[in-house]
Structure formats: C-alpha cells, structure tokens
Design a binder for these strands. Structure first.
Lengths: 137, 137
DNA sequence: AGTTGATCTAGAGCGGACTCTACTTCGTAC
DNA sequence: GTACGAAGTAGAGTCCGCTCTAGATCAACT
C-alpha cells in the first residue's frame, strides 16, 4: 500500500546544534550533561538516534547554567535533578538543597566583595602615586 | 675561647610550617607558589636548606591569597609579581593589571548576583508551595 | 647512637568540568 | 550512488590548582 507520511513525528523538537546555539553550551557539553544525568527527563530520539530537545529541556538547561554559574558542582545538580524526577513529596528536600546553595552563594559574594575592596584600595593607591609621580622621565 | 652563640642568624624568620599555620595555606601550596614564582623575593634559607620567611613574605602571601580568592589565575599573579620585582617604573602596568582584575571581579559579582536572584526566586516559590501544601502526610 | 618530626626535592597524581578524537551513521542535495 | 555536514558513541586528553609520594636530610631530644 502507498503510505508516504510526510515525516510526521521525528521532525519535532530541537537538534543538539540548535540547543547549543540557544544555550551557549557546546554540543560536547550537552552530551556531557546528559551522561552526567542532569537532564530532568530523557531526551527524545529520532529513528536514527538523533537527539530532539523540547523547549522545556532548554528551560531546564538554563536552570542548570545558572546553578553552574553560581558554583554548584555537578553532583549537586544531579541530586536536585533526581529529586525533581522523583516528583511530588521531594519538595522539602529540593528547598533544603536550594537554601544551602543560596547560603554558599551569599558567602561567595561576601568573599568576592572583600577581595574587591582590597583590590580597589590598591588601585586607588597606585592612582594616587602615579598622579604625584607622573610619567617617569 | 668559649663563645656559645645562642643560635644567632639562622634562627630568624618563620618556618614553612609556621607560615602555613598563619596563612591557612598548606606547606605544599607554599612550596608550589614559590615554584610558580609568585613570591616577591627569594625566600631565605638556613644552612641546612630550610626556608625562613619574613613578615613581609607573609604579607605578600596574604595579597596572593586575596588575588586567588577573587579568581586571578596564577599566571596573572606571576606577571604582577614580576612587575613588582622589576621595581620603579612598572607602576602603570601594575595599575593596569589591577584595574583589569577589578573589572573581572565586578563582572563576576554581577553574574553571581543574577544567579542568586534566580535561586532566591526558586526558594521563595518552594516556600510558598510548602506553606500551602504542608507536610505531605 | 637512635628516634622523632619537620623539611627538603623532584615528580607523579587528583578532582572537576569540560573538550576533543576516532570512527561510524544519518539525512539531505546533487 | 556519492558527497557532505551534522550527529552518534566511547573513551582519551586538557587545563588548573593544588596535593601527595618517595626517599633523603636535618635538628633536637634521650
């Protein structure tokens, strides 16, 4: 019989290249993250084995990027992902994990700020110095 | 002739262990930093080859610690150290280096703050949620 | 003289987060 | 069909900043 379905299902979703472009992650990093188990749900595949990401995959990745940018190690992101996957009932644990991270980030911010103060102090000292002893020669 | 000098010269200065204690760096890290050439001046040695640090070595190390804590890579610290060692005339370069670092730190602070905002938003969402659907039995 | 315990050097090893390689396969274009 | 780029896998390699090991030496104490 003659059914020639115009590529129905598999054409849906974003390729790994498109997701790389949108998120700023490399395709290598995307595959790496998947192997590390930090995607909320398994990525769908085409018949040929190609990954097809949904918009919500991209949103999840954006969260992962934020967590990484704020210094959360991959194992912690994995733990959080697992809680989300486990579904209803894990909310208190997720909250605890996020709160702990919040605390770490606040600490890091404070430390950075302290260092910045010192750097700025030194900058000011050099500026003063150079103002009084301009171009040497 | 009965001179029993009470350990005159070599007894001066801090041992590597003492410096480790004061700075919080490990003795390994101290030797590593020296190899990396980020000490302002060569550390003095006892007859037997043991390192003896001065107070100003410790001060310099404290600066290095601040620079590291604010994310300056070791090669940049080395560059700064070299400028300081080179002495008078390198002040403009040192200032430029510190200003560049200041800019990076400011950027990092902004990025961290953005991430923190998102984390705190999520924390708030979970808190709300758990307030309305308390302990799930 | 013997036993600690701290230090020395040179160099290997580690943990984290990717990044890259090698080689195969898919899908579309000509 | 064949040529090409994008994608697949498994696993090795890279970079950074230490950290640790091995084996020798040293200073002080008993």
């Amino acid at each position: 019989m003659d059914d020639t379905p115009p590529a129905p299902a598999p054409a849906t979703g974003l390729t790994i290249g498109q997701v790389a472009e949108r998120t700023g992650l490399s395709v290598h990093a995307l595959r790496f993250y998947e192997r590390e188990g930090i995607l909320a749900e398994p990525v769908r595949r085409t018949a040929g084995g190609g990954r097809r990401y949904t918009e919500s995959d991209v949103e999840w990745l954006n969260l992962c990027i934020v967590l990484r940018a704020s210094g959360m190690p991959i194992p912690d992101i994995r733990r959080y992902t697992e809680l989300v996957r486990a579904g209803v009932g894990t909310e208190p644990d997720r909250l605890a994990l996020l709160r702990a991270h919040e605390t770490r980030v606040l600490g890091r911010l404070a430390e950075l700020q302290r260092s910045l103060d010192i750097v700025q102090y030194k900058v000011a000292v050099y500026e003063d110095h150079l103002e009084q002893h301009p171009a040497p020669c």
